[in-house]
Protein backbone atom coordinates (compact mmCIF):
# COMPACT_ATOMS: atom_id res chain seq x y z
CA UNK A 1 0.00 0.00 0.00
CA UNK A 2 1.52 3.28 -1.07
CA UNK A 3 0.48 6.34 0.90
CA UNK A 4 1.19 9.86 -0.20
CA UNK A 5 3.37 11.82 2.20
CA UNK A 6 0.65 14.47 2.46
CA UNK A 7 -1.92 11.89 3.60
CA UNK A 8 0.54 10.61 6.17
CA UNK A 9 1.07 14.11 7.54
CA UNK A 10 -2.68 14.67 7.83
CA UNK A 11 -3.00 11.39 9.73
CA UNK A 12 -0.14 12.41 12.02
CA UNK A 13 -1.71 15.80 12.66
CA UNK A 14 -5.02 14.20 13.60
CA UNK A 15 -3.28 11.65 15.84
CA UNK A 16 -1.30 14.41 17.57
CA UNK A 17 -4.47 16.39 18.21
CA UNK A 18 -6.23 13.55 19.97
CA UNK A 19 -3.12 12.02 21.56
CA UNK A 20 -1.87 15.18 23.24
CA UNK A 21 -5.34 16.19 24.42
CA UNK A 22 -5.79 12.71 25.88
CA UNK A 23 -2.53 13.09 27.82
CA UNK A 24 -3.67 16.49 29.05
CA UNK A 25 -7.00 15.08 30.21
CA UNK A 26 -5.23 12.20 31.93
CA UNK A 27 -2.94 14.57 33.84
CA UNK A 28 -5.87 16.71 34.94
CA UNK A 29 -7.95 13.70 35.96
CA UNK A 30 -5.09 12.23 37.90
CA UNK A 31 -4.94 15.21 40.22
CA UNK A 32 -8.72 15.47 40.57
CA UNK A 33 -9.15 11.74 41.10
CA UNK A 34 -6.62 11.67 43.90
CA UNK A 35 -8.30 14.56 45.66
CA UNK A 36 -11.75 13.08 45.11
CA UNK A 37 -10.75 9.76 46.68
CA UNK A 38 -9.28 11.68 49.59
CA UNK A 39 -12.49 13.62 50.07
CA UNK A 40 -14.54 10.43 49.84
CA UNK A 41 -12.47 8.83 52.57
CA UNK A 42 -13.61 11.69 54.80
CA UNK A 43 -17.23 11.71 53.68
CA UNK A 44 -18.80 8.93 51.61
CA UNK A 45 -21.63 11.20 50.45
CA UNK A 46 -19.20 13.06 48.23
CA UNK A 47 -19.12 10.15 45.77
CA UNK A 48 -21.46 11.85 43.31
CA UNK A 49 -19.62 15.14 43.34
CA UNK A 50 -16.25 13.41 43.18
CA UNK A 51 -17.29 11.36 40.19
CA UNK A 52 -18.55 14.38 38.33
CA UNK A 53 -15.49 16.47 39.10
CA UNK A 54 -13.30 13.62 37.94
CA UNK A 55 -14.90 13.37 34.51
CA UNK A 56 -14.91 17.12 33.87
CA UNK A 57 -11.53 17.18 32.06
CA UNK A 58 -12.77 14.52 29.63
CA UNK A 59 -14.12 17.45 27.64
CA UNK A 60 -10.52 18.15 26.64
CA UNK A 61 -10.25 14.83 24.79
CA UNK A 62 -13.59 15.42 23.13
CA UNK A 63 -12.39 18.76 21.82
CA UNK A 64 -9.26 16.94 20.68
CA UNK A 65 -11.38 14.40 18.84
CA UNK A 66 -13.48 17.09 17.21
CA UNK A 67 -10.33 18.84 16.03
CA UNK A 68 -8.92 15.54 14.73
CA UNK A 69 -12.08 14.84 12.79
CA UNK A 70 -12.08 18.35 11.38
CA UNK A 71 -8.43 18.02 10.31
CA UNK A 72 -9.24 14.84 8.42
CA UNK A 73 -12.44 16.34 7.03
CA UNK A 74 -10.78 19.56 5.82
CA UNK A 75 -7.77 17.74 4.39
CA UNK A 76 -10.07 15.30 2.63
CA UNK A 77 -12.07 18.18 1.13
CA UNK A 78 -8.96 19.98 -0.06
Amino acid sequence: MVVEIGTGLVALAAATAIGLSAIAAALAEKAIGTAAIGAMAENENLFGKGLILTVIPETIVIFGLVVAIMIIGLAGAA
Binding site: T59, F63, V66
Partner: peptide, 12 residues
Protein backbone atom coordinates in the same frame (compact mmCIF):
# COMPACT_ATOMS: atom_id res chain seq x y z
CA UNK B 1 -20.17 27.79 23.73
CA UNK B 2 -17.81 25.37 25.41
CA UNK B 3 -20.84 23.91 27.18
CA UNK B 4 -22.58 23.33 23.86
CA UNK B 5 -19.38 21.95 22.32
CA UNK B 6 -19.21 19.58 25.24
CA UNK B 7 -22.23 17.80 23.78
CA UNK B 8 -19.88 16.63 21.03
CA UNK B 9 -19.28 13.72 23.38
CA UNK B 10 -22.66 12.39 22.26
CA UNK B 11 -21.00 11.83 18.89
CA UNK B 12 -17.53 10.96 20.18
Amino acid sequence: FSNILSYARLMA
